[in-house]
Design a protein around this nucleic acid. Structure first.
Lengths: 187, 187
DNA sequence: GCTAAAAGCTAATCCCATTAACCAGACCTG
DNA sequence: CAGGTCTGGTTAATGGGATTAGCTTTTAGC
């Protein structure tokens, strides 16, 4: 029996990809093992069960989201930066619904948990965006939470089929961006 | 063996309560049956499996949320109405995280699905709130989606432990209300 | 009281996660 | 190159949860 050349990162990456395909609830150890050409119990040589797998997928997703938002923001400021960040975030969630879902409800276990560092990097990109607006230091945390709620709420609602009625969803999101921009400008 | 006097609504109500206690993922048919003083398979005389149970819980939750928001808004207009609606919504989600979680991702199967009617009633309360602002008809749908994203995003992030860092969460939510109010006023 | 549907129950099946125990190959050491 | 050990596979076994089948008893209507 030849070695499959797996390691925790490879398992997490395959798990993330599979979660995007079949949905996080559909991500099963057996299905993942099959995808990797290996028997189910072998996965346990690399990850400590489903919970650990989920955490690794979450860390990967947060890191990728941070990269995407960080890259999108490069070279922009003010409204352009805000729009770039929000669009990049939503695009990421819509393209990777499974791995993004894995990030919901996970909390870092230690300060140096990859989940913590990746979250902070993602948060940092949004903080940088806010520097393009004139905001009181005391308002920054609230503004960050507002942006996070907006982006998270919109993206998860859309990816969960939550927007049923008529109006165009992309248009709504652009409207949202404009709304947030005006609001931040008026602080 | 005496009859337990169950019916679909009673099962759904007990399921909702249990989901609030143990979390939606922890809601198991066996646990629910035990709670109702009945053996697991008996539940299937009232609900068509977990998916059906989830839909019933979702319908109940949406209906209750609609009641809460509707009642909270009574007699207010403008900023007061907006604040009342948003607070009522968040309070409901925080007090009933399990049943609210059941609403995520469910879609009505028919136009007269209780899920559809309850969603519409909840939506209606927010629509009524918007009437206190001078908003173009073409902006109403976008504004509704914005409010929904904000409330849903904030409440689910908070109930999932998503807000780690320092600042006071209640204060952030009040800030959010003020932000939305100013933004809607400036349309 | 009689019958039939409704609401329980037990037993059985299947799927999934996880653990235990075993085995082969890679790799390092002498 | 021979030998030992660690690693990453394997099969087999356990336990839990959902669901279905088939049986039995209560209860409602007549």
């Amino acid at each position: 029996m030849p070695r499959a050349g797996l390691d925790p990162a490879a398992v997490a990456a395959a798990g993330a990809a599979l979660a995007d395909e079949v949905g996080l609830p559909g991500l099963t150890m057996g299905l993942l093992a099959e995808r990797l050409g290996v028997r189910t119990p072998s996965l346990y040589k690399h990850v400590n069960g489903q919970d650990d797998l989920n955490r690794r997928i979450a860390a990967l997703a947060l890191s990728e989201a941070g990269d995407a938002v960080g890259a999108a923001v490069q070279g922009y400021a003010g409204r352009d930066a805000l729009a770039a960040a929000m669009r990049a975030f939503r695009t990421f969630v819509l393209e990777h619904p499974g791995r993004y879902a894995a990030t919901i409800g996970v909390e870092p276990l230690a300060p140096d948990d990859p989940i913590a560092t990746a979250s902070l990097r993602l948060l940092g990109s949004f903080t940088a965006v806010l520097r393009g607006y004139e905001i009181e230091r005391s308002d920054v945390d609230h503004a960050l939470r507002m942006l996070r709620s907006l982006c998270h709420g919109f993206a998860t609602l859309q990816s969960g089929g939550g927007f049923q009625w008529s109006a165009d969803v992309d248009e709504s999101f652009e409207w949202l961006i404009a709304f947030a921009d005006r609001g931040l400008r008026a602080l």
